[in-house]
Design a protein around this nucleic acid. Structure first.
Length: 569
RNA sequence: GCACCCGUAGCUCAACGGAUUAGAGCAUCUGACUACGGAUCAGAAGGUUUCAGGUUCGAAUCCUGACGGGUGCGCCA
């Protein structure tokens, strides 16, 4: 917010000072990393001086003289090689504070042009349990969707579940030969996984079993009624369990359009790509070549096997058509692991050849590794179930909550769920998405330090103060920010707008997580330094307003990470 | 073989062209409880940012090359 205003004031200053700007030059303003120099800073004079071949400090002084920011800043200085440093006035900060406590979006402006954005994330496979490997796509995707929606975009979330792959050949064969129906009733997913693994092992030992599985798959794809019925039951059973998990996680999708939804689109799609000359036959398979793209010159995209079967890329192309034609998507974000980078590069190139100009973005992320430093493999190395992680997290939180007094048993359960689930989400989202990390129970479930409970505790402290008030209180606009701790907090509170903007620039929720941690930290310090309830008059009103604003920004910000809050803990 | 990602305190991670002093958390060590909720705060200690060159007023960040780790590369998804 302040950053945007300062940026536009700088631009006006260039005009006022008669400085000729090079083509496409935009002044850069950032939140100061070290507040000793000011609250915001710009290196515009330095980059500009380089291009205009003049002295950066002199240019900075010239810009400073032309700047009209008296309503915002109490001080502007030119420092070092030519930095412009801005220190906001207490009045400007107070004004922001007043907006934050009453605005629905806690002072974050809505985008001028709303885009229609499809966010594709989570995408688990049917008949397999969700494990820790699904954490990243699910949490990052959910958070990005929430943030985009919050700043005013039209967001469509779509869970592109894997409900049609070749693994069904094995499940069908297993269902017919080794399924235990009692076990299926008791725990469907567990039984399906057992069957899948058993058949998978059989195929390794016996080539004939693999052939049988392929036959079962072909029958399914041709609409064989028996196989269709088994498939339908598998999907229903899996979806039931998935919805249960998403419910616990407070994650909701607008659509569950799995791979199977596009079955009848695939043949015509390939046909059309052939007749339009985009695809060609090579070694019996249908491929799209990218001879004009050097990096992809020897990496064609296969869209139909020589046996007539369709592939991953085929379904994805049909999915793109649906999202553009039916949903009128301006953008599609794929929150999918980094190993699939090549696939998406090919996919986007095919879309380009087809004249689809929708912005497509692969939001890649690193892998969660086992203790051996290798990727979790669903088939070989056992991964840890997502439900198991959540249960353990809630249990550990419950152990701490149990010691509290003045809470009912029901409240304790609810608090433990909020904190346990929040801890797991925060552990993921506070990390840079490209970083590979080793799965660790202690890291995932930590309750001390830079964790969700720390942030939620700050929120609880804001609420606790208002509970202590004897009567309903009406906050007035009479604000007097004087103490350093008050000022630091007011400044932090004003920066959510900048942060949400930056998050979407690079698809990085960890920036928001880190901002919220700093906000909570700043609040805790303020809390120690400035007593609220014993203060009087305008000082008390100011501090209460700071508490209310912190409360709102924390709740909103955590909500954007998909993390809930609780009034007590 | 080629391509992409990664290498930062003992450990787990931030910072991704900006500042004399590269930040946090955990672990270690000092302090602060007749408490606006201690799941807290104030502080100490801990790093040639894998290495070698280069670009720049300025590099953990950009470029080149090593070394180390991971992933991917026409009929899986």
């Amino acid at each position: 917010m302040f950053r945007a205003i300062l940026t536009s004031r700088l631009q006006s200053a260039f005009t006022a000072a008669g400085i000729e700007l090079p083509e496409g030059f935009l002044p850069n303003v950032v939140i100061a990393s070290d507040t000793r120099y000011g609250d915001y800073q710009s290196n515009a004079a330095m980059t500009l001086a380089k291009q205009l071949k003049t002295n950066p400090r002199a240019l900075a002084e010239q810009i400073k003289a032309a700047l009209r920011v008296e309503d915002l800043c109490e001080k502007i200085t030119v420092d070092g090689p030519g930095f412009l440093n801005f220190t906001l006035s207490a009045a400007a900060l107070a004004q922001r504070l007043a907006v934050i406590v009453k605005d629905d979006h806690v002072g974050v402006p809505q985008v001028e042009q709303a885009r229609r954005i499809v966010v594709d994330f989570s995408a688990p496979n049917i008949a397999k349990p969700m494990h820790v490997g699904h954490i990243r796509s699910t949490f990052i995707g959910d958070s990005l969707a929430r943030i985009a929606r919050f700043i005013g975009h039209q967001v469509i979330t779509d869970n592109h579940i894997g409900d049609w792959g070749t693994q069904f050949g094995m499940i069908l064969h297993g269902w017919k030969t080794i399924l235990h129906h009692e076990a299926l009733d008791k725990d469907p997913i567990q039984e399906l996984v057992r069957v899948y693994k058993a058949v998978n092992a059989q195929t390794k030992a016996d080539e004939a079993v693999l052939t049988t599985c392929r036959t079962e798959l072909v029958k399914l794809q041709q609409g064989d009624p028996d196989n269709m019925e088994i498939w339908t039951r598998c999907v229903a059973l899996s979806l039931e369990q998935l919805r249960q998990i998403y419910g616990k996680l407070d994650i909701h999708f607008d659509h569950y359009l799995g791979e199977s939804a596009y079955n009848d689109k695939l043949a015509p799609l390939v046909e059309h790509l052939l007749t339009s000359g985009i695809a060609e036959i090579s070694d019996g398979a249908t491929c799209v070549f990218f001879r004009d793209v050097p990096e992809l010159a020897d990496k064609p995209c296969l869209i139909r096997k020589s046996d007539g079967g369709f592939l991953y890329a085929t379904t994805d192309l049909a999915t793109i058509d649906h999202r553009i034609d039916e949903w009128k998507a301006d953008e599609i974000w794929y929150v999918v692991g980094a190993p699939q980078e090549l696939h998406f590069r090919q996919l986007f190139q095919v879309a380009k050849k087809r004249g689809q100009n929708t912005r497509m973005q692969h939001v890649a992320f690193g892998s969660i590794l086992g203790q051996d430093g290798k990727m979790f493999k669903t088939r070989s190395g056992e991964s840890v179930g997502l439900l198991e992680v959540l249960a353990e997290a809630i249990e550990r939180a419950a152990a701490v909550v149990a010691e509290r007094e003045g809470l009912t048993d029901l409240e304790k359960i609810q608090i433990a769920e909020v904190i346990g689930t929040g801890a797991v989400k925060y552990a993921e989202l506070s990390q840079h998405r490209m970083t590979d990390y080793k799965f660790s129970w202690d890291k995932m479930l930590a309750l001390q330090g830079n964790t969700a409970p720390y942030l939620i505790n700050a929120y609880v402290r804001t609420k606790s103060i208002f509970r202590k008030l004897d009567a309903e209180i009406t906050l007035t606009p009479e604000l007097t920010i004087t103490e350093p701790a008050e000022r630091a907090l007011a400044l932090k509170l004003a920066q959510l707008a900048e942060i949400t903007h930056d998050v979407l620039l690079d698809f990085r929720p960890n920036l928001l997580a880190s901002y919220l941690y700093e906000l909570a930290d700043t609040y805790h310090s303020f809390y120690e330094a400035c007593n609220v309830l014993r203060a009087e008059g305008a000082v008390r009103n100011t501090r209460l307003t700071l508490c209310e604003a912190t409360s709102r920004v924390l709740k909103t910000g955590l909500g954007l990470l998909g993390i809930q809050t609780t009034e007590r803990m």
